[in-house]
Design a protein around this nucleic acid. Sequence first.
DNA 1: CTGAAAGCGCTAACAC
DNA 2: GTGTTAGCGCTTTCAG
Lengths: 370, 370
Amino acid sequence: MTRANRRAHPSPDDTPPAASAHVAAGVPTMRDVARATSVSQSTVSRILSDAPTAIPIAAATRERVLETAKRLGYRPNPLARGLMGARTMLLGAVIRDITDPSFPAIIEAVTTEAIGHGYNVVLGHAQGKAGEAVELWAILESRHCDAILLLGDLSNQPALIEGLQGTREPVVALWHGSRSTVIPTVNVNNRSAITTVMAHLAALGHRRIAFVGRRQLGDIVERAEAYEAFLERQGWQIRPEYMPDAVNEYEGGMEALHRLMRLDEPPTAIVGATDVLAIGLVHAALQRGLRVPADVSVTGFDDIPGAHVIMPPLTTMRMPVRAMVKAAIDIAIGSPGRQVDPAVDVHQVFEAELVVRDSTGPPPEAGRGA
Amino acid sequence: MTRANRRAHPSPDDTPPAASAHVAAGVPTMRDVARATSVSQSTVSRILSDAPTAIPIAAATRERVLETAKRLGYRPNPLARGLMGARTMLLGAVIRDITDPSFPAIIEAVTTEAIGHGYNVVLGHAQGKAGEAVELWAILESRHCDAILLLGDLSNQPALIEGLQGTREPVVALWHGSRSTVIPTVNVNNRSAITTVMAHLAALGHRRIAFVGRRQLGDIVERAEAYEAFLERQGWQIRPEYMPDAVNEYEGGMEALHRLMRLDEPPTAIVGATDVLAIGLVHAALQRGLRVPADVSVTGFDDIPGAHVIMPPLTTMRMPVRAMVKAAIDIAIGSPGRQVDPAVDVHQVFEAELVVRDSTGPPPEAGRGA
DNA sequence: CTGAAAGCGCTAACAC
DNA sequence: GTGTTAGCGCTTTCAG
C-alpha cells in the first residue's frame, strides 16, 4: 500500500479511518484546478507553465485559472514535470568534502540562491573515494537535475569530469581551480590574492616567508605558484624547505610549523594556503612558546567562521562567496532550458579581499640564524 | 526544446549534430531491457522492483533480466517511480541553520547514511524566517520525499511542526530537544551530559559555576535545566547572574564572559551551552588577560571541528553524531513504505561523552571577592 | 484561443 | 510465471 494520496475514496481498506483529517483531500492536481475553473487541463498547464506568453491566452481565462490555482493551493508536481523531460527544478551539488570548514557558507549560499530561483538542491559529497563521485553523478543524472554544481576541486575524480562532458545538463564548477577548460568555472583569483598577502607581509618588513599547503587541490596549486612568482619578482630566494607539504587539516598546519621552526633559518612569516592550515600553524606556534605575530606572522585564506576568534585573530583573505555562488548558478540555470553556450569560454574570476587582523606584524628585530 | 533524451532519432532539427557522442543513445529504459530480454516490461519491473520475492519468477528469467539490465547500464527513473506514489528515494532535510558549526558533521553523516540506504538528500534550511520553513516543507512535500528529517530545534516554526503532523511521510527530528511529543525524535541526553560536566568541574574544586546559553533552543533549555538541577542537588546557590543570556555565536559568548567577570564574585568556571559559546568565552577571557584554566575554567558542548585547536584546547561533550543520525534514518526510512508506527513512542536518547582537554583545571587558590 | 489525446517510465491490478 | 492494460500528473502536438 504505497500508493499516495488517493482522494474521494471512502477508504475501503487502506486508510486508517479517522486519521490525518486536514490532508485527506490530498494535494490538488492540475485536473482539480481545471474542473474548478471549467477549462481543460491543458489550458491550465499552459497558463501555469513557465512559458506564459508563448501561446496567447484570454486574459480572463488566465485570471480565473490563476485565481483558483491559488485558492486551491495548487502546486505543480515536479516529478510529473520531470518525467516529460521538462525542468525538474532540481540542482545537483557534488561536494568535494563537506567537512571542510569553508563549505558550510558555500552550501548556505547555494541553497539560498537556488531557492531564490525556485530550485532545490540535491546534495552529494564525493568524499575522496574515486568511484563514489561517478556513482553520485549517475544518481544525480537519473534524478534529471537541471544542472550540476561542482563544489571544490574534484579534479582527483577524472572519471567524473569525463562523464560530465557527455551530458546535456549544464555543469559549473566552483572553486575547482581554473585549470579545467572543459567545464565552466567560477573561481577566486588566487594569484592576485596571494600577491596581496605577500605584499602585506613584505610591507611589514618580512623577507623570509614560507608557504604551507599541499600542491594537489587546484586552488592551492595556484596559490603556491603565485607565492613562487612573487618571490621571483622580488628577486628573493625560493627555498624548497619553505614550502612544506601539508594536508589541509589543522594537524597538517601544526606539523608544518614544527618542521619550519626546526630550520636553521626559520621563516618570520608563514602564508597558510587555507585558514585551516593557518589556524593549525598558529596553534603549533603557541604550543612552542612562540608569540604570534611577535615571533612569527601567519596568514590564512577563506576567512572561515572562527578565524576571528582564535588567538590572535587571523589575518586572511576573504572571498565573495555569495557573489561567486550567484554567478555559478546564473551560468548553470540562468538560461532556462538551454545548455551553457559552449562557444563562450565561461571562466569567471572573482577577487578576494585582505582582512588584516592580529596574526601579522613586523618581523622580530633580530632574525634568528644567519 | 526541453525534451530530454530522444533516442533513435536522426535529430531532424534539434540535436546539435556531432555533439556528445557517448550519451547520444540516452539512458536505457525498462522497455529497452524488456526488449533486449524478450520479456514483457512488467516482468522486468517485477524483477527490478524492491519486492523481489513477492511474486515468484522463474530463476532463469530473473537471471537473464538482471544480466541485461546490468549490461545496458539500466537505472530506474526515480521520477517515474515517484509519480506512481512509489518511493522516490529522496530524503528531505530541513536544517535550522546550516552555518552552525556543529551542522557540517551532521550533514555529512546524513548524506553518507542516506546514500548507504540508496537515498539522496534534498536540502533546505529554515534560516529563522518563520514562513520560510513552511514554504520549504511544501516544496519537500511536493517532491514526494519518502521521509523528512528535521535537523536542529525548529520549534520556533510552529506552523511547520503543525503542518508536518498531517502528512503521510515519516518525519523524524534530530536535536530538536525532547519536548516535542508529536514527532519522533532522536536526541542527546542533555541532562546527563551537563551533569557529567558539572561533576567534572565540581571534582576539580569549583563551587562558583556559571552557565551561558540562551534558553530558547530545545537542547539548550534542557542543558540549562540540568545545570540548575545539579546545583540544587548539591545544595548550592542558584544565582540568576550566573546565567547570562547569550545568542549562540562567538560574540554571544564573548559578551557573556565580560558580563560575568564584572560581577563582584565572578565564577571560577563557566559551562558553555555550546562550543561556539565556549570558544567565545575563552577568547574574551584571554582578551581580558585572564588565564584559562588558571583563572577561569571553560567547558563546551558538541566538540565541533576546531574545538581542539583553540588555545587552550576545549574541554567539551562529544555526541555520537553518527549513531544518532543512523538511528533517525532507520526510523524514517527503516520500514520501507510504512509510516512510522504511531503507536510506538519513538524518542531515542543518546549519551554524550566527556572529552577533557586543557580548558578546565582547579579553581584559583584564593577566590576573588567574598 | 482552447480542447482532446497521446505519452514520458514506471507500478499494479487483472488476465491467462 | 508472465503478458496486458491502465493510469500516476503533467507537457505537448494536433485539431478545432
